[in-house]
Design a protein around this nucleic acid. Structure first.
Lengths: 125, 125
DNA sequence: CAGTTATTTAACTGAATAGGAAACTACACG
DNA sequence: CGTGTAGTTTCCTATTCAGTTAAATAACTG
């Protein structure tokens, strides 16, 4: 799959990235990586009201970054890493770009050999 | 670095994820992965006005996902993969979670050995 | 059933986003 | 200098977002 077609199958990537674009939500994910937690537990470290946390969780849930169950009046959350894996594979498409430090994937794609970096030269004349 | 401290150094991750949470901007990045391009070239595939694209580029530039230069009246953009690398390493923190399919990093952190996967068993009672 | 705990919903506010239209800047070219 | 080309800025609109308070729902507990 080329980087040009990548746009076609970014099914839910908008939603995923939008969910990740918030420090509270990333912190919630980090916490859930250590095991499931209910809403009050998740809210504890933050200077936010419970409804605010509840909404953040809803965003994460809707983005399928967390799964929820229900035990009595508790609604524990757990991490669902599937979408994180999707993020990883999206960003991994660009890995050659930063690894080669070429900033041109073309050259990487076309010719895998290291081959002298081939400066394009400044062409501002 | 543990997943709990990860929150502390997510310097510009908000901005980065927010910039990536848009299909037009991701498509622009994809295009730039093939080499630099100016604004009109970047705008061509989209059903958006030039100012709209210009603003998307500004978002990407501010998020340091693209770099810009100036040749005459052209302002070519090129991909800067540094922040993508940051995204990759952020998401890679979670790799053990989806690779082990445990949904509990604790167990991974505690005992790295493969050691028979140790099913926790269903505990919904 | 009354009360307590856990969580959500509703209603509202202020700020940020995405987009368009129109006007503006900057440069090249003749 | 005037015109075309490349791109940005300004202004405006509609939508979404993050947060609040207050009220509602849900389930356990005595």
């Amino acid at each position: 799959m080329s980087l040009l077609t990548q746009t076609l199958d970014d099914d839910r990537l908008d939603e995923t990235f939008a969910a990740l674009a918030n420090p509270t939500r990333r912190a919630i994910l980090a916490r859930l990586a250590h095991g499931e937690a209910n809403v009050n537990e998740l809210a504890a470290p933050f200077d936010l009201t419970l409804p605010a946390i509840s909404k953040h969780i809803k965003v994460l849930e809707h983005a399928r970054l967390v799964r929820r169950t229900a035990h009595a009046q508790y609604r524990p959350c757990s991490l669902d890493a599937t979408r994180l894996e999707a993020v990883a594979s999206w960003v991994d498409q660009y890995r050659p770009v930063w690894e080669a430090r070429l900033d041109r994937l073309d050259e990487y794609v076309g010719q895998l050999q290291p081959k002298r970096q081939q400066e394009k030269g400044p062409r501002h004349g």
